[in-house]
Design a protein around this nucleic acid. Structure first.
Lengths: 196, 196
DNA sequence: ACCTGAACACCGTTCAAGT
DNA sequence: ACCTGAACACCGTTCAAGT
């Protein structure tokens, strides 16, 4: 209770960080602004200076999640030299790993947000996420692994499958022990389906 | 306020029905037991007789959702006579239609439920849902449209793709106008990938 | 500019008591 | 068996007031 004006005015960042922690531990529905404020030793009304309401805070956390996921994908991308199948597999595995290790975050990121006005930011984050997949498909077309056609549409189609595995693995429909096999099966079908 | 002992003791059913309505209109996070009770003219403590807590009510609603989705899929299944591609397409379209027209319900059904003890019921509901897909894959193997192998694994692989489209369409990542095209692309790749 | 304290209108859950 | 009323410990949001 000794330190006033918490964190040099960096309450916003502190809130986001703490929100990320409690999200991971207890899920979005159990995240309360008042508890966050308590954890950071500020009054319960303080968060409203930085986020207009609970939804705005959660949107900001989701946006950070997209950035982190994009970074994870970019880091996992072995580049075109690895070969098409290996590259797609690396990207897919990184996606599924992220979804499984950040269940609550991914649930927040991919929960309905139709009425949100923060949709432009989301779209940009999404583009960054999709970039390595686009690159993989485009390179696949050059190496003869992928049939001709609109890169974006083909990339989306690939993403559907990977997202399906990631989502179902994340919520436990696919048992932890079967995830590798399930992803392998999905990739086998996907790679064959993409061939010229 | 005149009618006491609401609905001949069928408060449980009335709660589920009303919960379904407010879920559709305002989403799971905005569903309050007290508001439900108000809508049904019972005291705010009444629901606890039929559902031990809020989570139990939502689980029951999700379970009904699986039953309804299974029914929708069974009804949409044209049977083996339609041919493999047409059959798979009918099932996929029914899945996506359900996901888009029942956004909030599908979000509830496919939200993390790892710690729930109502997991056995969920598993049974899931099996009913998967039945037509299993049948389509098994028949596809007989007609030479699908490669040999474990039916369950192949069916799951098909489901990943369709679920991916359904989920992303449901939350608005795929714009409404592009859903048909996206599903078409996904099915093209899937059917090719499944071939012997 | 940023935070506090009090106030308002909500919650879920529990439990004695009523019918 | 089923429901009520009161109580408890929470919420999100707003707004005057402080620094």
């Amino acid at each position: 209770m000794a330190n006033r004006s918490y964190h040099h005015g960096d309450l916003r960042a502190a809130l986001l960080e703490q929100a990320g922690r409690t999200l991971r531990e207890k899920g979005a529905s159990a995240l309360s602004l008042r508890e966050l404020a308590r954890d950071l030793n500020v009054s319960h009304a303080a968060p409203s200076r930085h986020f207009k309401d609970r939804r705005a805070l959660l949107d900001a956390v989701a946006l950070l999640g997209f950035a982190r996921m994009a970074e994870a994908l970019a880091k996992a991308d072995p580049g075109p030299e690895a070969g098409f199948r290996a590259r797609l597999e690396a990207l897919a595995r990184a996606t599924v790993d992220f979804a499984v290790s950040e269940r609550e975050l991914i649930a927040l990121m991919f929960s309905s947000k139709a009425d949100t006005d923060a949709l432009d930011d989301m779209h940009e984050a999404w583009m960054r996420l999709a970039a390595p997949v686009y690159a993989a498909i485009a390179d696949g077309q050059r190496t003869g692994d992928v049939h001709a056609g609109d890169v974006e549409r083909i990339a989306y189609s690939a993403f559907f499958t990977v997202h399906g595995v990631a989502n179902l693995a994340s919520i436990g429909v696919i048992p932890e022990a079967d995830i590798d096999q399930a992803l392998g099966d999905a990739l086998d079908h996907l790679v064959r389906g993409l061939r010229p």
